[in-house]
């Protein structure tokens, strides 16, 4: 019981923000919260939010671990493009589905390990180390697709993007399962605690015998793997690999999701579930704007304003001054002696 209470208190700001965003959208577009069952699946705008959140949600899982070690991974958007290109070219060439998926996941893992080695072993600053793949990755993806949108027709693979299992769309199943698997892995074992230790003070953690280098390679590899799953979903969704646009700027949304989730960019304590709720908040905003009928010129402004408000409410400075203001008001009503 106390465990649930603690979890809820940790997730409270994110859950409240999500609820407020959903309520606001429902006020603007009354049909928003409507979910029905049709064509053998759950159908409605809330499902759109859950499905479309998949790429950012998956990226934010890996990004949370990376940020917890005081790192950052700018390359995950490009990794989506690479893995998508690999998957699409192999599907088009007629390879079996299992081989395609394993190859894409393998390539994603490789991208992650590359970043991990640059950061963990060679000690390059994470923002620079991952910038390399961010810039080069899209070029690699374009070489694989030869600069065209590589399309294919393989319903079994497209199922990953637009299919449904027991009424739940596949992308949702994939991000929830990945979140659960990685969340359990780091929390049931001591892995999560060790990652936090590395993030808070790498030298101290190494001195007490934590293998920080290994953990850093591990978190970037996890980020690469998550990006590969996102790449599979994005590619299956449009039945094609668009090397120019697949995953473009999604690394920034993923970082934002982690920040909304309350994990500090300075490393240390992290929460994967809070990051996932952060991803849902971002996507709820996107879908809400689309369904509101407002002109597209407002899209980014609305998103920015809402996110500033959410982040400001989480800021300790704002929280302290709100508390101070409340105290002043209480004092005005009933002056304390100490104030005179």
């Amino acid at each position: 019981m106390t465990w649930i209470a603690t979890r809820l208190r940790r997730l409270a700001p994110q859950l409240i923000a999500l609820a407020l965003v959903v309520v606001a959208i429902t006020l603007i577009a009354p049909g928003f919260a409507h979910v029905t069952f049709q064509n053998g699946r759950l159908y409605g705008s809330p499902m759109d939010v859950l499905v479309r959140a998949a790429p950012v949600a998956l990226l934010s899982i890996g990004m949370t671990l990376v940020i917890a070690t005081k790192g950052i991974d700018l390359s995950v958007g490009a990794t989506i493009a690479i893995t998508g290109a690999v998957a699409a070219s192999m599907v088009a060439a007629g390879h079996p589905l299992a081989v395609v998926i394993l190859a894409a996941l393998g390539v994603g893992l490789l991208c992650g390990v590359w970043n991990g080695l640059l950061v963990g072993l060679i000690d390059i600053q994470p923002i620079i180390a991952t910038l390399i793949l961010m810039v080069a990755g899209r070029g690699i993806a374009q070489l694989i697709t030869e600069g065209v949108i590589l399309t294919f027709n393989r319903p079994a693979f497209a199922f990953l993007g637009s299919g449904a299992f027991l009424g739940v769309p596949m992308p949702v199943i994939l991000w929830v399962l990945t979140g659960l698997a990685i969340g359990l892995l780091v929390r049931v074992s001591a892995l999560g605690l060790l990652i936090e230790a590395v993030g808070i003070n790498r030298r101290a953690s190494m001195m007490i015998g934590i293998r920080a280098r290994f953990l850093i390679v591990f978190v970037y590899a996890a980020a690469g793997l998550c990006a590969a799953i996102a790449g599979l979903i994005v590619t299956a969704d449009i039945k094609g690999a668009d090397a120019n646009n697949a995953g473009l700027w999604l690394e920034l949304d993923a970082i934002l999701a982690v920040v909304i989730g309350g994990t500090a960019l300075s490393g240390g304590r992290f929460s994967i579930s809070a990051s996932l709720i952060g991803a849902l908040i971002i996507q709820a905003l996107n879908t809400g704007i689309l369904i509101s009928g407002w002109p597209p010129e407002f899209n980014l402004i609305i998103k920015a304003v809402v996110i500033i408000v959410i982040l400001a409410l989480q800021s300790p400075v704002v929280a302290n001054s709100l508390a101070a203001a409340a105290r002043v008001r209480a004092d005005l009503k009933e002056p304390r002696r100490s104030r005179t």
């Binding site: 759109d48 449009i238 646009n245 689309l290």
Partner: peptide, 22 residues
């Protein structure tokens, strides 16, 4: 209704999904 799909397939699909619901 008029929204931006950024000239891409993914965004075109996402925007259309929302239009259909609306």
């Amino acid at each position: 209704r008029s929204q931006t799909g950024d000239f891409t397939r993914t965004k075109g699909k996402e925007v259309m999904e929302s239009f259909i619901k609306a």
